[in-house]
Amino acid sequence: MSSAPVTGTIPGYTAGTWKADPAHSGIAFAVRHLMVSKVRGRFTGSDVTIVTSEDPLGSSVVATIDVASIGTGNERRDHHLRSADYFDVEKYPTMSYRSTGIRRTGDGWVIDGELTFRGVTRKVPLAVEAYGFGPVTSGGRRAGFSASAQIDRRDYGIHIPMDGVGGVVGETVSISLDVEAVLQR
């Protein structure tokens, strides 16, 4: 791995501390339901801080997600997801992600990190695409990123009632993030 900065591969790369703009960012998930379709949802409450260093490989990210902010478009299902059967928001109101390193993979990037959810911490790598960095007409600078990962819900103690009877909910949960971040002054 080269120790030279690789900023030329990210348009307008800028070192600094960035906060996700909630109006232009989203954390979403998808999971198989009854093995015939997918249920999709998102979390509307989060706090994401990205620190970009002069060398992108030295950058970091920390995120906290308000688990009760889940929305799938079905209030009955959302209420059930907040229950002890799934997210247990009374006991575990947030989940968090903390990067432990960043690496290049071919023409992309991976953020290695740890996801803590329901009191359990597991390593979860995020495949990342940096869209670019640039000025905005209102002043300041913004940066855009997307990331994706897959987790196994069982790793976090989510064992669905009737799990062995027809697969009510899939084991693999796909996670996707779209972040538009604002450079902090």
Results as ranks from 00 to 15, higher is better:
S2M: 06
A4M: 13
A4P: 04
P5M: 00
V6P: 01
G8P: 03
T9I: 13
I10A: 14
I10S: 11
P22V: 13
P22I: 11
A23F: 09
G26F: 07
A28S: 15
A28Q: 15
A30V: 06
V31E: 02
R32T: 01
M35I: 08
V36R: 00
S37F: 02
S37Q: 05
K38M: 03
R40F: 03
D47I: 06
T49M: 13
I50L: 13
I50V: 11
G58Y: 04
G58R: 06
S60P: 15
V61H: 05
V62Q: 15
A63E: 11
D66I: 00
V67R: 09
V67G: 06
S69V: 05
G71R: 14
R77S: 01
D78K: 00
A84I: 03
Y86P: 00
Y86N: 00
F87V: 05
D88R: 02
Y92I: 01
S96H: 01
I102C: 01
I102H: 00
R103E: 15
R104Y: 07
T105M: 11
D107G: 14
W109S: 00
W109L: 03
E114G: 08
L115E: 00
T116R: 08
F117N: 03
G119R: 14
V120L: 04
R122K: 15
V124A: 10
P125N: 03
L126I: 14
V128A: 07
V128R: 08
S138V: 07
G139N: 13
R141W: 11
R141T: 09
G144K: 09
A147F: 05
G157H: 10
I158L: 03
P161R: 10
M162E: 02
D163W: 11
D163M: 13
G167C: 04
G170P: 08
G170F: 06
E171L: 12
V179F: 10
V182Y: 02
L183D: 07
Q184F: 02
